[in-house]
Amino acid sequence: MAEEDAAIRRLYEDLLSAWNDRDARRYASLFTDDASLIGFDGSQVDASELEKHLVPIFTDHPTASYVWRVQEVRPLGPAVALLRARVGMVPPGHTDVNPAVNAVQSLVAVQHNGTWRVALFHNTPAQYHGRSDLAEEHTADMRAAMVEASSRS
């Protein structure tokens, strides 16, 4: 299972790295043909439309970069797994996360012919209504993840 766990974590890292690189084609290539994406704003995109959906976002908007911490990778059955993570975003030209756009993400990965791909990616705002301690904890965790990522570079 350690090998599968590592492969699923790599898939997730590749996905967010493709976003950070503003590479719509590479991002879309990580999904199965029948996958779905649910975006931060609630938009729902089928895999067949994913690249077309992302190109104008990357072309017309200075997108923030993700920092993340995987919380769990759990098998759901043979060749199917769930990854859950917390993320923060660093706006272009800034050096700190923007707590207003912290999120939690879920990724369902499936393995076909030895390759893991995204079947479902869901990005939900982490607003923690009325629980400022959780919001502050999330932001502190993302700041720590950002420091850890920069030390690996």
Rank of each mutant, 00 (worst) to 15 (best):
A7E: 13
I8F: 11
R9T: 09
R9D: 10
L11N: 03
Y12Q: 00
D14Y: 07
D14Q: 14
L16V: 15
L16F: 15
A18N: 08
W19K: 00
W19D: 02
N20K: 03
D21G: 12
D21W: 12
D23Q: 08
S29V: 12
S29D: 15
F31Q: 03
T32I: 02
T32F: 13
D33L: 08
A35W: 13
L37I: 02
G42M: 03
S43C: 11
S43W: 05
A47Q: 05
L50R: 01
L50A: 02
E51D: 13
K52A: 15
K52S: 14
K52G: 04
H53M: 06
V55E: 10
V55Y: 06
V55Q: 08
T59R: 15
H61L: 13
A64I: 05
V67W: 11
W68E: 09
W68M: 05
R69P: 00
R69G: 06
V70S: 09
E72V: 01
R74V: 04
P75L: 01
L76C: 05
A79D: 14
V80K: 01
A81H: 06
L82V: 06
R86W: 06
R86E: 09
V87Q: 05
N98H: 09
N98P: 01
P99F: 07
P99I: 04
A100G: 00
A100Y: 07
V101M: 12
A103W: 03
A103M: 04
V104A: 09
S106Q: 06
S106H: 05
L107M: 12
V108N: 04
A109R: 02
V110K: 09
H112C: 03
N113L: 12
G114S: 04
G114F: 15
W116I: 05
V118D: 04
T124I: 05
T124F: 04
A126G: 14
A126H: 13
Q127M: 14
Y128K: 03
Y128C: 04
H129R: 12
G130N: 08
R131N: 07
D133A: 13
D133W: 14
E136P: 02
E137P: 00
E137N: 02
